[in-house]
C-alpha cells in the first residue's frame, strides 16, 4: 500500500499504539516527501504527541512500520534514529535548566561523533576550547535570537526564550527531518510572530513535520496538512482544502482553541 518509501523522508505504515486498553494511535499511514513542510493538527488528546514519540522511537510501537529516508527504522533505538538525521522539539520544553544557553547549545552541536568516537580523548579537553564549535554555537544562537543570552542559565530565561532555545537545540544537531511539537503554544501574539519567522527561515532542505493548534501559523508554514482525530488520520490535503473539509470542521475547526 505504501509505495515510494525509498524516496520519502518519512513513511509510516499502519502504526498503532495502545496505553493499557486505550488506543492512542491507530493504524496511521503517512508519507512525507523530502523537503516537505507538513502540519499535523487535531484536537487535544488526538494522539499527535504520541505519534511523534513513536516516530522518534522514544515509545515502542505496538503495530506497523516506520521508514526514515528509505531505511526501515521500526526497531531502531531513538539514538540511532537521531544519528540518521532526526531532530525534535517537545510540547513541554525540554532544555537543560541548570546549564547556560551556551552550554545547552554546546551539548547539541558537539553530539554524536564527539562523544561516541572519542570518549577518552574528550575527557581532558576543555569544553569551550574548540573554536569550530564555538562558532557553530554562536550561529545557532543567532538563528534563534538568543545571542545576547548566551551566559544566562536556561532555567532563568522567559518562557518565550525557552521555546526559542528548545528550537535551537533541535536545529543545532543539523537534522534532515525535524519534528516540532506545538512550537508556538503558550506564546504571546508577538512572540508567536517571531517564532513563525524563525520557522520560515529554516533551511528549505530540512523536512518538517509540525503539530500546530494555531491555524494561521499552520497555514503560513505548511505545504500540506494532516488532521488527526482519536488516533487516526482523518484527512490529508493542502491547507485551503482542509479549511473547507466538512469532517475536519466538525472535529476540529469547530473547537474553540483553533484561533486561540
Amino acid at each position: 500500500m505504501v509505495k515510494n518509501h525509498k524516496k520519502s523522508a518519512l513513511t509510516l505504515q499502519g502504526v498503532s499504539k495502545w496505553f493499557g486498553g486505550v488506543s492512542a494511535v491507530r493504524g496511521v499511514d503517512l508519507v512525507i516527501k523530502v523537503g516537505e513542510r507538513r502540519a499535523l493538527i487535531g484536537p487535544n488528546g488526538a494522539g499527535k504527541t504520541t505519534l511523534f514519540n513513536l516516530i522518534t522511537g522514544e515509545l515502542p510501537l505496538d503495530e506497523g512500520k516506520i521508514w526514515l529516508f528509505g531505511r526501515d527504522v521500526t526497531y531502531w533505538s531513538a539514538r540511532q534514529r537521531v544519528m540518521l538525521g532526526l531532530g525534535r522539539t517537545y510540547q513541554i520544553t525540554q532544555i537543560f535548566p541548570n546549564l547556560t544557553v551556551e552550554e545547552n547549545l554546546f551539548l547539541a552541536v558537539r553530539r554524536r561523533q564527539e562523544i561516541s568516537t572519542g570518549l577518552l580523548s574528550n575527557l581532558f579537553r576543555s569544553q569551550t576550547a574548540d573554536s569550530v564549535f564555538r562558532e557553530r554555537v554562536r550561529q545557532v544562537a543567532q538563528s534563534v535570537n538568543l545571542e545576547d543570552a548566551l551566559t544566562t542559565l536556561a532555567g532563568e530565561l522567559s518562557y518565550g526564550k525557552q521555546r526559542q532555545l528548545e528550537l535551537g537545540l533541535a536545529l543545532a544537531v543539523d537534522p534532515k527531518i525535524l519534528l516540532l511539537d506545538e512550537p508556538t503554544a503558550g506564546l504571546s501574539a508577538g512572540e508567536r510572530k517571531w517564532m513563525t519567522q524563525l520557522l520560515e527561515k529554516i533551511d528549505k532542505k530540512v523536512t518538517i513535520l509540525f503539530i500546530e493548534h494555531n491555524i494561521d501559523v499552520a497555514l503560513h508554514i505548511a505545504d500540506s496538512v494532516s488532521v488527526m482525530y482519536k488516533g487516526s488520520i482523518i484527512a490529508e490535503a493542502d491547507p485551503e482544502k482542509i479549511r473547507m473539509n466538512k469532517r475536519v470542521k466538525e472535529v476540529y475547526l469547530g473547537s474553540p482553541e483553533v484561533n486561540g
Binding site: R79, V82, I95, F96, R111, R112
Partner: peptide
C-alpha cells in the same frame, strides 16, 4: 543529570 531524554534526542549514548 538535567535532562536525560533530551540527551538521547541529541544523539548521546
Amino acid at each position: 543529570r538535567d535532562n536525560p531524554s533530551r540527551m538521547v534526542m541529541l544523539g548521546y549514548p
